[in-house]
Amino acid sequence: MNESFAYLRSGDLVKGREAYQSAAKLNGDNVSERYKIILLKAESDVLLAEQNFESARQVANLCLRYPGVDKYTLQLGQCYLNRALANIGLNRDNFVFADLKRSSAMFDVVGTRSWKVLGLRTLAEYYDSRGDSENALRYFKLYYKGNKALLFDKRQSDIFLLEQEFATASLAQENELLNAEKELGELTLDKQQLRNRIVVALGIMVMISAALLLIRLRSIQKTNKELLKQSTRCELTGLYNRRYLEQRLTQPLPNHLSSFGYTLAILDLDRFKQVNDTYGHDIGDQVLVEVAKRLDQILSTNDVVARWGGEEFVLLLAGNQEPVKELELIRQAIADRPIETHSGQLELTTSIGATTHLTEQQLNSRTYKKHLKSADDALYQAKQSGRNKVVII
């Protein structure tokens, strides 16, 4: 399916469809629901590339209605995006922007800006190909602004709605007060006594409104925390993602009293591609989840591990013990014990490249990439020298 996507992006529709059909042959009762959802998304990609917009829309609908698709946020957003593109091809502009908004929200949740930007760029190129310069320019501008987060805007919007609701309730209370005063004059009741009752009622309503506002604000805060967690965690392994670690490395680190200093290491599973090619990506995902568990168990509280991409992990060790010893323990935790999978036990090793004894001043927004490059060079040496090794530069 990745091969099909690559061919379609390069304009080779024939090979793109052939690659998709090869992937479709693997579909069956023994594959995961995630595979079936990705396969539907890939089919709609092919149909869109072939400009078969009606069929692409129907397949995208199948993807969006597939049982359990809500668990796969990224694929759900991709299918919304494909349905929007199909409706553009069918000149159904009324149905486009709602799906674009949904897909954008999904991509924000998983921190997948590349798909969000791809959707905007695709729209811009589409309008440009039709000679609609105004809309093309509009979406090109949105494309270049696509990296801006929507979380703050959403929070501000919710607070604005709360303020509007509170203002409406206050106006309703004032109207009730005026009507009560009119009735007092007409019925010659004790105006002061009734006024006191109204004041008490108004106070109770204000207190209730304030309590409701507080409850709503706490709900918003809880939602924001959950969204932040989702945007900084790898959906598969539960580890921090690349986005989180890059933010961590651009911020001041705590003063370090240990003589070992900080260690920046890159861990790469040896011959992991053979696992995917031989057993399938579901087994590969099982391996990644188990490796993440072992790393999480062996690392100290102040250490940070993030899935950098694919089978590659980046570790920021806080120097709680001697770096060579700690990195060897990490290597042995993976190499010395087979990994249990649905296809049986798999024996895997890992290569680790690292740079050690770094100070907090050396790890900042201007220099951390240089040390990552050093760790990557060390990883290359570990791979070249036979794998299953730790190399420190």
Rank of each mutant, 00 (worst) to 15 (best):
S22P: 00
R17V: 09
Q345G: 01
D270T: 04
T73A: 10
K141S: 13
L327G: 04
H371E: 09
S374F: 09
K101Y: 07
T301E: 12
L202R: 15
V69F: 09
F140K: 03
L228Q: 13
L264F: 01
R218F: 14
K182I: 12
V287I: 06
T232P: 08
E174W: 00
V199N: 13
A19S: 14
L123I: 11
A24M: 03
R34A: 06
L162I: 12
E181G: 10
E347D: 14
D277T: 10
D132K: 03
L150M: 11
F97Q: 15
I204S: 12
R307S: 04
Q21N: 14
A84F: 08
P323C: 00
R130Y: 12
L202C: 13
L315M: 01
A318D: 03
M1I: 10
K325P: 00
G16R: 06
L123G: 02
Q345S: 15
S259G: 11
K148L: 05
Q384Y: 07
N91F: 11
R216S: 14
Y380Q: 04
I339F: 06
I266K: 05
L227V: 09
F160R: 15
L150I: 09
L39F: 02
L245M: 04
F260Y: 11
Y240N: 10
D132C: 06
Q362T: 06
L245V: 07
P323S: 08
T278R: 04
S385R: 14
L213S: 15
A6Q: 15
P338W: 02
I283S: 09
D270A: 05
D45Y: 05
G185R: 07
Y368R: 05
V304D: 01
I339C: 04
V304I: 07
T367G: 09
V275T: 08
N196T: 09
K41G: 12
A84R: 04
N302P: 00
V200A: 15
S129R: 13
Q297Y: 09
D270K: 06
T237D: 06
S170G: 11
G146L: 00
S343R: 10
Y139A: 08
